[in-house]
Every structure is written in C-alpha cells, then in structure tokens.
Write a protein that binds this DNA or RNA. Sequence first.
DNA 1: ACCTGAACACCGTTCAAGT
DNA 2: ACCTGAACACCGTTCAAGT
Lengths: 178, 178
Amino acid sequence: MSVRKMVNRPAIAEAARRIVDEQGVAALSMRTLATALGIKAPSLYDHVRNRDEVIALVQNLGLEDFGAGFAGAGESTREKVLFYREWALKNRNLYPIVFQQQLHRDLITPGLEAKVLAIVVEAAGGSHVAARAVWAQLHGLVDLELQGRLPADADMTSTWNQVVISVDAIRQANLLTR
Amino acid sequence: MSVRKMVNRPAIAEAARRIVDEQGVAALSMRTLATALGIKAPSLYDHVRNRDEVIALVQNLGLEDFGAGFAGAGESTREKVLFYREWALKNRNLYPIVFQQQLHRDLITPGLEAKVLAIVVEAAGGSHVAARAVWAQLHGLVDLELQGRLPADADMTSTWNQVVISVDAIRQANLLTR
DNA sequence: ACCTGAACACCGTTCAAGT
DNA sequence: ACCTGAACACCGTTCAAGT
C-alpha cells in the first residue's frame, strides 16, 4: 500500500508554514515545497497560481494564529503588549511574512484582517489613529529585536516596560476623549 | 579614446545605491551591477567578497546620508520625527536595507552606527531605554506605511502627530529623571 | 484533474585562463 | 591586479505529454 497523496491548498499551506518555521522563508522554494508534499514543482501550479500565492496561504495561517491568541491574551495593556512580543519571538520566521509584507488581501480569509485590526483598535482605546501609533510601536520594537539591530546586551525587559507605559498613555488619553 | 573604467569599492557602492534607488533591491544582482559598471559579474569578486558585501556598502552610504540629515534636522521632537518619516519616504528602497537588515557591522565605517544612535538617544531625552522605545515607534510606523499595511485612506498626518505627542512624552519623562 | 520531465531565463559563485 | 567565458547548483515558471 502506497501512501496516498492528498495535495490541496490546505496541505500546501501547512507544509509551507512548516518549512518557514523550521528553515526560514528563504528555504521555501517551489521545489522544496513540492518535495515535502511528495510531488514535483510544476505540479504545484495545478493548485496555486505562483509562489506569491503560497506566501499568501502562509500569511493567512499566521494571521489566524496571531488573531486567536491576541484576542484571548488578557485585557490589560501589559498583557496585550507582552503577548505581541512573545508571539513574535515564538514565530520569528513567520512574523515578517505576516506583518512585514504586502498583505495579499484578495487571498486572505474575508474579514480576518478587519477582525485583528478591531482588537488592536479596542486595545488602543477606540481610536484608529491611536491604534496605528500603538501598532507601530509594537511592530517596530519587535522588528528591531528580531533583526538584531539593538545591542546584544540591551535591557529588553526595561525597553518593553517603557513601551507598555507609552502604549498605556496613548490608550488612556483616547479613552478620556471618547 | 575609450572610456576608462574606474571600478573600485566606492564606485561599486554608488552604482549599487543607484540601482537600489531606481529599481529596488530585487533588481540588484551581481550581473546587473557589473553591467552598470561596464564589467562582467565574476570581476566583481576581485573587489568584493560577495553580494552581502555590496549590501553592506549600500548600508554604509544610507547610514551616512541619514545620519547627516538627522543631526541637522532641528532640535524639536516634531522636527526630528518628521525628518525621520520624510527621509524614509524619500528613500523608500534604501530604507529597509539600512534599517531592516542585519547591519554588517564589520564593514560599516567605524563609529558611524554609534554616532547615529547617539543622536537618537539625545533626541529621546538621554536614556537608552527611551531611545529604543522612540526608535521603535518611528521605525514601526515607517515600515507599516512603506509596506502599505495601513488603509489607503488612513489619516497619516494625524497618526504622525500622535507619534510626535507620544515620543515627546517619553522624552519629557526622561529629561525629568536625569 | 493532476502529475511528469524537459526547458527557459534568471540567480550567486567558482575557476581556469588570459593580460 | 583585474578581467573574461564557461560552468555549477540553484531559482520561478511554462509547456507538451502522459494518466
């Protein structure tokens, strides 16, 4: 009995995410992906338009994973902020794909991006402007940390505490003016 | 009289930056770079170890350009913040190379990174922790903006004003505790 | 519908060979 | 020292051909 191949878009998405998690985006080629699925590269094009669409599938998985975790991360500013950091560190190969690329909006589960954004807006005190400033701060520090742009001996705990304070100030100011 | 080729590291750096500015990093291949310099790709390896070293040369040019501008950008929080944004928008292809990659520190002009960091620390009110939180905010919003992650109709002027307020709050708090 | 091998135009990089 | 053509092992993608 040979192993039955079940190649479809969900299977491709999972295999792709696995490769990204374990070896980074650079290792995600159409050939390695095909091999992981037990087929040859050209066959992938029967399921997917191109590599970009594979990336979009991974973005979708990542956004779902993040969204579920962030929604259930506790209500305080501190809990939300620290969840964001921990998710990024735990998914360091996935993070840039989900949060640092053009989002292939036509291929993402409808409403998913809006759902995640709504949680951020809520956490920021209800204002879209505030939400962007807050998100920028979280995203920026995560990126600097992931890219190794901060000194190796930088006190990240204190830095994230500073971010918690700063985010909370934005949140409070916006709650007041509601 | 034939045109004399003067291929050396500064010439390579300039040609590479030009390609990046005009066509983006993806267009910077060893072959296109060589062609721009009037030589063949393998010859580049007589001047440069590999493509990474070319990227480092571009990082260096970018960091110098940014550093000079940022230092002379005015003293107020608002001026510094808005300069950061404008430099990023004016150098949208260069920005990610300078601020979103591992810095090839061994190949960067000695002291250059420290000089730029010192300006940020100064602008943040003197604390390294505060400087990281401030930088995160600027870098994060620039990245979200450059990657098109914010809605097309997002009010970026208000958002950057929010960032100015937030950065200034961090700065003031740190000036007080000095 | 799904898969294949062969091929195309690209990469970065190495290497023997020329001056 | 600097440059070259040829080659290697990779890419993403297309296409004719098989089932």
